[in-house]
Amino acid sequence: MIVLTNIELTVLMSAVLAALMVGSVHLRVNLWLYGATTILIAIATGLTAYPNEEPSLLLIALLIAGLKSIAIPLFLAWTMDRIHVHRDLGALVAPPIAMHSSILLLGLSFLLTQGLPTPSGTGAGWYGASAGISLVLTGLLLMLTRRLAISQIIGFLVIENGIYVFALTQTRGMPLIIEMGILLDVLVGVMLAGLLTFKIQETFEHIDIAKLTDLKD
C-alpha cells in the first residue's frame, strides 16, 4: 500500500506532467504543461507553508505561480510568435520514445533516492525527493533530445523546477532571501536566453542548436 502526503502527491503529479511534456513536439503544449507543472509546485509550496506556519513560503509560492508559471511561459510564447516557430520537429530521439524513457527515469529516480535519509518535518519524504530528481532527469532528457533553442530553455526550466522540488521536500525551507535570489537569477537567465533566441533566428534564420557547429576544434 502506497501512502502519499498531499505534498508528495502534488510534486509527483508535476513530475508526471513533465514526463508527458517530453512526448509532445508542439512547443505551445510544452509551455502549457510547463506552466501546469509549475503551478502544481507552487501549490506544493503553499501546502508546505500551511502546517509549518512559514509565511515566507506562501510568498515564494505566489512568486512561483506568478513569475515562473505565468510570466515565463507567456514570454516564451511571445518569443515563439515573433519568430514563427511552433514545433520542434527535429527531435533527436522520437518524442514517444523520449516520453517512455522519462517514465523509466521516474522509476530510476525512485531507486536513486532510496539511500537518502528521510527528512523530518517537511511533510514529504522519499517520494518528494524522487519527484525532484525525476524532474531534473526529465529536464536533462529534454535538453539532450531537442534541438530548438526554445526547447533547451524549457528543459533548463524543468531542471530548475526539479532542484526546487528537491529543496522543498528535503529541507525545512531555504532562507527567503536566497530563494528570491535564485528566482531572480533564473528569470534573468531565461530573459537573456529568450533574447538570444531572437538573435539566433535573425542571424541564422533558424533556431536549431544542433546546427550551430561552426566553432569546434
Binding site: P119, E160, F166, L196, F204, L212
Partner: peptide, 28 residues
C-alpha cells in the same frame, strides 16, 4: 559570437544548476 554566447549561457547555467542541487544537498 552568438553561437559561443549561447553555448556559454546554456552549458554554464545547466552546470551551475547542478551546483544548486549540491548546495541544497549540503543544506539538507
Amino acid at each position: 559570437a552568438l553561437e559561443a554566447t549561447w553555448k556559454y549561457l546554456i552549458v554554464c547555467s545547466v552546470g551551475i544548476a547542478f551546483a544548486l542541487l549540491g548546495t541544497v544537498l549540503i543544506f539538507a
